[in-house]
Structures are given as C-alpha cells and as structure tokens.
Amino acid sequence: MLFDKDSFLGRLFANEETRRIHQGILDYLEVVDKCLDTFEEAVHLYLEEGFSSKFEDMDKKTHSYESAADDKRREIELTMYGRALLPESRGDILGLLESYDKLPGTSEGLLAILLVEKPKIPQWLKEDFVSLLDINRRAAAKSKEAMIALMEHEHVKALTDEVDSIESESDKLQMAMLHKVFDSDLELSHKYQMKSLISKLGSLSDRCEDVANRIEIVAVKRKI
C-alpha cells in the first residue's frame, strides 16, 4: 500500500471537505443504525404486547430517526457539490446513500402496516418473526461494515459475500414461514396478511443485498 488513511500522506491528502464527507457518511450510518434499532425494538414490542401506545411512541421515534437520516444524507449531498471528489465518486456515493436509504424507508413502511392494519400474529409464528428480525439486523450490520470498509480500505468482498449469504438465510426462513402460514388453518385473508408482513420484513435483507451489490460494483469500478 502506498499510503493509508491514517498515515502522514493520508492525512495530508484528505482535505477538510473530504473529511467532512467521510464524517458525514459515518454519522449517517449511525443514525440509520439507531433507526433500525428502534424499529427492531418496536417489532419486538408488537410481537410481545400487540398494538399499544408504547408501540406508537416507538413508531414515532423510528420515523424521527428516518427523517434525521434524510437530513444527514442531504447534508452530504450538498457538501459533495464542492470540489472534494471526482465526478464519478460523487455519483457512486450518491447512489450508495440512495440505496442505503431504503433500509430506514422499508422499516418505516413495515411499522406503518403494523400501525394501520394491527395484524394478529399467531403465537406459533412469533419465534420465526424474531429470527427474521435478527437475520435482518445482521445483514444491515454487515452492510454498514462494508460501507465503512469501502471508504477506509476498499477490501469489501468478504463482507459483501457475508451479506449475500445472510440474505439467502432470510429467503429460506421466509419460505419456511410461508409454508407454515399456508399449511395452517388461518382464514385465507389472514394468511395473505401474514404473507405480506413476512415479505415486507424479509425485503429488508433484500435491500441490504442491494447495498452490498452496489458497494461491490463501486469497489471493482475503482480498481484501475
């Protein structure tokens, strides 16, 4: 390696603007993390207690984190209009942030379904929902790691591969859950409501896979 981020040359090369963009992205990832944590907590709460005022509060909190993430993203975009980065890097970062922004967006969408439809989740399915939540969280954590790795040393392949394999786990679990639902004696409408809920929750790991794919493409594209 010619020089890395923390070396003398690295510090010399990273000017104020690039430092602001880098820090802005890290801050953005943190806010999204908080949004996903609150979302996870809210779903856990819903699974344990069903609809409640506490759940409503958690939903509002998730929404405020989602808005804060949007603000951070706009801040980064504005900083990038300066002269800090090459044109293609500006495009790459904008694309990555746009893709990453689907995570809080999807979470918020799922909470909206719980808030509006207030579905009754059968007891025998709750454990699977918890597992699916856990898989999503792992996929999101690895996507975040891959984002940071892309900025700091660009060795992303192992991390993006991990996101891929976590997403496959999610697909398998979703399929098993759907089998359970449609083999059960629930009302057909209830079955479809559960199906939509499972797909919506499962789509979070799909979005993580999208982020990972994009990261991988950016990393490959940047190799000369």
Binding site: F3, D4, F13, E152, I224
Partner: peptide
Amino acid sequence: NRVGFFFGRDR
C-alpha cells in the same frame, strides 16, 4: 491502486 482509501485515491 496502492492508495488504500477512497478519498485518498480521489485526491
């Protein structure tokens, strides 16, 4: 390519 980080390479 031997510059080890995203922003450093751009710079």
